[in-house]
Nucleic acid binder design. Sequence first.
DNA 1: CAGCATCCGAGAAGATACTG
DNA 2: CAGTATCTTCTCGGATGCTG
Lengths: 107, 107
Amino acid sequence: MDVEAAFKLLEGRWKLVILFHLFGGQVRRFSDLERLIPGITQKMLAQQLRRLEEDGIVTRTVYHQVPPKVDYRLTDWGQALCPAMDAILKCAERREDFPSAASSARA
Amino acid sequence: MDVEAAFKLLEGRWKLVILFHLFGGQVRRFSDLERLIPGITQKMLAQQLRRLEEDGIVTRTVYHQVPPKVDYRLTDWGQALCPAMDAILKCAERREDFPSAASSARA
DNA sequence: CAGCATCCGAGAAGATACTG
DNA sequence: CAGTATCTTCTCGGATGCTG
């Protein structure tokens, strides 16, 4: 897998945020994620989850009940992304250590 | 800085790829990057570089010469992103360790 | 509850041509 | 060399309504 392909997996406005809420083996229902990610629409949530599923990053489990229940969790491969996410978050926190950078936020 | 804001800095098709070619203190000219990133247009390269500059991630240095020369390098804050990038690449390489994932690549 | 279908607008990205 | 300008195309994301 080349650099571009790797980055492509994480592209889009919501993917990383969704993954963030699935880390550490957390299992989330559709409605959980909807609540945890303010501003996301059902459409985008469903769409991105499908894409993550196709990319082998999350597992989708359907329980045939009434009312329906579906939950999502990371695959083993998805879990492997954790260190990467951690690193991104860590260095985001450190931004304040660089005054020149902190002052130049875009609108 | 919250999670979303952090991820927003890395959004877009080209940003991560550009950063990738500036890691380890590498200094690149516009034409270098153009060559290193097949498929990118001058427009997108210039646009993304400007954005990275505004976000305080890269530094743009103009040499008033003929022919003109401009080079780009990471700021201190930009360097701080390295571990995150590394982690992403590392775990991309490890994808083959997870057969179920490797078999489900999207078109 | 967990979605899919449809329509819409905005912004991203691409092609091409031109300039200091 | 290192861009800008313009135009077109495409994809993303949002709004709304419907279904098993």
